[in-house]
Design a protein around this nucleic acid. Structure first.
Lengths: 329, 329
DNA sequence: AAAAGAAATGAAATCGATTACATTTTCATA
DNA sequence: TATGAAAATGTAATCGATTTCATTTCTTTT
C-alpha cells in the first residue's frame, strides 16, 4: 500500500518525477526513470486512482442506464459500449432502473457527486425532464431510445422505417389482417413503430383496425402471452402479428403453441431486435436486426467526445429484416 | 459546481461544520445547521465523492465478475447484489470477463488502484491464483462458483446434491440410459455435477457410460445443439439428457425439435438454473432452481462485512427441482 | 457573578495524486 | 573554460472532502 511519496523517497527523487514516470509524458532521464521503476517494483506500488481522480476532477466512469438487465436486447449494446470505454480507459457502471424514478435518481446522484463523468441512457422510461436538466451540466448520450428535440445527442435506428418494412413483408406474403403488439405510446419507439405499421397498411390500402392494436405494459414474455390471448379471443382473428420486441413475439409464439395454432400457416409472427433466443424458438422468429454492438460503441465514443468538449452529432444506423420460419413455413 | 469551501463561506462557518452537517453525526446547533443547509441549497452544492473517497480511502464500489452477461442465470443474482449494495451505499461495477484473463486483469487493476473496494467473483474461469493473491490484500467473495480450499469465502448451492436429484428424477420416471451434458471439468461445478450424476446412477446400479458424457466448451445455445447432435449420432442412443445449464438444455431441445424427436416421450431433458426462457420453450423445461436473488444479496452482504473487517463464513443455500413438460409429457 | 463543565465551532493536517513554476544540471559552443 | 540554452528535476499549490485537537461559546451550579 505504498504511495507516491514513499516511491519518491525510495528512488531518491521527488514525487513530481515519479508522477512523470507514471504518466510517461514529460521527459525523464532514463537513469532516473530506471531508479523510479525499480522503486515501484520493490514497493509493489500501484498508483491510487482516488488521488489521481480528485486531482483531475474526473472519475473515468460512465453510467449506463438500462430499464432491465434481463432484456437480451441490451447485451450486445453493452458489449459495444464496454469495449470502447475500456479502450479509452473508462469503466462502465451498469444501472438497471426497473423504470423506477427513485432508482434512476440514485444513479443520477453518482453523476452529480462526480462519481461518474457522464451517462448513456437506454431507458425509454427515463424522466426526460431530469435528463434535460442534467444535460446542462453533464455529458449525456441517448442510445437506442431517445426523447427528441431536447438537444441531447442520440444514436438509434429508424424505427418507423424498420417497422414499415416488417409489416410490408407480412403484406407481401399475403397477409391482410395484421395485428400490432406495441408497448406504451409514451415511448418514442412505440409511436414510431406504430407509424411505420400504419404507413405500410396505408400503402396497400388496408384499414387500421383498433382491435388489432394491442398495448403491453412491459416487454416481457408474459406480456406477449397475455396479448396473444387477447388476439386469439378476437371475433375476426388476424392472420399475422408484428410485435415490437422479440420477447413479446416469443411469448406470443408460446401462446400460439399452447393453443395449437400453427405458425406461420395459421398465424405469422414478426419480432424486433434479433436477440439470440429468437433463433432457438420453434419456429425460429422473423425479426428486425439492429446493429447493436456498433450502436453501443458509437454511443460510448460520442460520450467520450462530449466529455472532451467536442461537438457531437446524433447518428441513425441501418437495420435489417431477418426472415425466418415464423413468416415462411 | 460549488465546493465545501464556498458553502462554508456562504454560511459563515468553517468547512468542518459543513462537513458535520453533511454527515449528520456530530452535533451541530440547529441554527448553524439551518444556515449551512440554506447555503447548500443556494449554491446547489453536491458533495464530491472524489474528495470524500480519497480522504476515506474507499471507493464504495464493488466489482462483480461474470463470465458472460448474456447468460440469464446471472440476472437475479446481480439484482440481489445490487439491491443489497445500494442499501449500503455501494455501487456495482459489472465486469464481463468473457473468461479472458486480459480482461479480468483490467478489472483487477481497478481494485489494485483503489477504484473498487472489493470483488464478487462469479466467473468459474477466473484465474484462481491471481484471486488468491488478491484476496490477501483485498476483500473477495466467490458467488455460485468457487475454488475450494483457498480461504476465500463463498456462497453457493450444493451442486452435487442438485445434480443427484435431477438424475434420480430421471431414473425414477423410468430412464436407464441417461446422458450428461457437462461443461469443462476444470470448473468445480462441472466436477460436482458429474459426481452427483454418477452417484445417482450408482445408487440404482446403472453403469457410467463414457459415450454418454459430453463436454461443451461454453454454456451457450449453440453448444447445446452441437452436443445433442453428437448424442443423436450415438449407436445406442440414451433416452434422457441432463444438461448442467438451461442454455445447453434449450439448445438441445432445439436440436431435438429439428430432428423430429419428441420430448419427453422419445427423449427427456433436464436443465439447470431455471432461467426465464426455460418456461418459454416447447416443451417447458424441467430444471433445478437456485435461489439466485438470495445468493446475490448474501454475497453482497458478505463482501460488505468483509470490508468492515468482520469475520465471514461461507454459505451453502438450498435448491429445488422444478418438474415441467420436458420430463413429464 | 464566577467557575466549571459541556457543547459547538474552527484551524490545520491529511488522503494521494498532478502540474505550474522555479531551480538545478547537462552539454554544446564560443 | 565560461556561457547560455535546453533538459531534468524539485517545490509547493491544488483537487474536495474528513477529522483531530484546540479554542470558543453556552449552560448550569453555587
Amino acid at each position: 500500500m505504498a504511495n507516491i511519496q514513499q516511491v519518491a523517497k525510495q528512488a531518491g527523487v521527488s514525487v513530481a518525477t515519479v508522477s512523470r514516470v507514471l504518466n510517461g509524458q514529460n521527459k525523464v532521464a532514463s537513469r532516473t526513470k530506471q531508479k523510479v521503476e525499480n522503486a515501484i517494483k520493490e514497493l509493489n506500488y500501484e498508483p491510487s486512482m482516488l488521488g489521481r481522480n480528485l486531482r483531475n476532477s474526473e472519475s473515468r466512469i460512465m453510467l449506463i442506464l438500462i430499464p432491465a438487465i434481463s432484456n437480451p436486447f441490451y447485451f450486445e449494446i453493452i458489449k459495444g459500449i464496454e469495449n470502447m470505454a475500456l479502450s479509452q480507459n473508462y469503466s462502465i457502471l451498469l444501472c438497471e432502473t426497473d423504470s423506477r424514478p427513485e432508482k434512476e435518481d440514485i444513479y443520477f446522484d453518482l453523476v452529480r457527486k462526480k462519481m461518474a463523468d457522464g451517462i448513456i441512457s437506454m431507458d425509454p422510461a427515463v424522466n426526460i425532464e431530469t435528463l434535460k436538466e442534467l444535460a446542462e451540466k453533464y455529458a449525456i448520450i441517448q442510445c437506442s431510445e431517445y426523447g427528441g428535440g431536447i438537444g441531447i445527442p442520440y444514436v438509434t435506428i429508424d424505427s418507423e422505417e424498420a417497422s414499415y418494412r416488417a409489416v410490408k413483408h407480412l403484406i407481401q406474403i399475403g397477409h391482410r389482417k395484421i395485428a400490432l403488439m406495441n408497448s406504451d405510446e409514451k415511448f418514442s419507439y412505440a409511436r414510431e413503430r406504430k407509424a411505420g405499421y400504419e404507413r405500410a397498411l396505408a400503402e396497400y390500402g388496408l384499414p387500421v383496425i383498433d382491435d388489432y392494436i394491442l398495448y403491453t405494459q412491459q416487454l416481457g414474455f408474459e406480456y406477449g402471452q397475455q396479448a396473444m390471448k387477447k388476439i386469439l379471443a378476437l371475433p375476426d382473428r388476424p392472420t399475422a402479428v408484428f410485435a415490437v420486441s422479440d420477447l413479446l413475439a416469443i411469448g406470443a409464439l408460446k401462446e400460439l403453441n399452447a393453443a395449437g395454432i400453427h405458425v406461420p400457416n395459421d398465424m405469422a409472427v414478426v419480432g424486433f431486435d434479433k436477440i439470440d433466443f429468437s433463433n432457438m424458438t420453434n419456429p425460429t422468429l422473423t425479426t428486425i436486426a439492429q446493429p447493436m454492438y456498433k450502436m453501443g460503441a458509437i454511443a460510448a465514443r460520442m460520450l467520450i467526445d462530449l466529455l472532451r468538449g467536442e461537438q457531437v452529432d446524433s447518428v441513425v444506423l441501418e437495420h435489417e429484416l431477418i426472415i425466418r420460419e415464423s413468416t415462411s413455413g
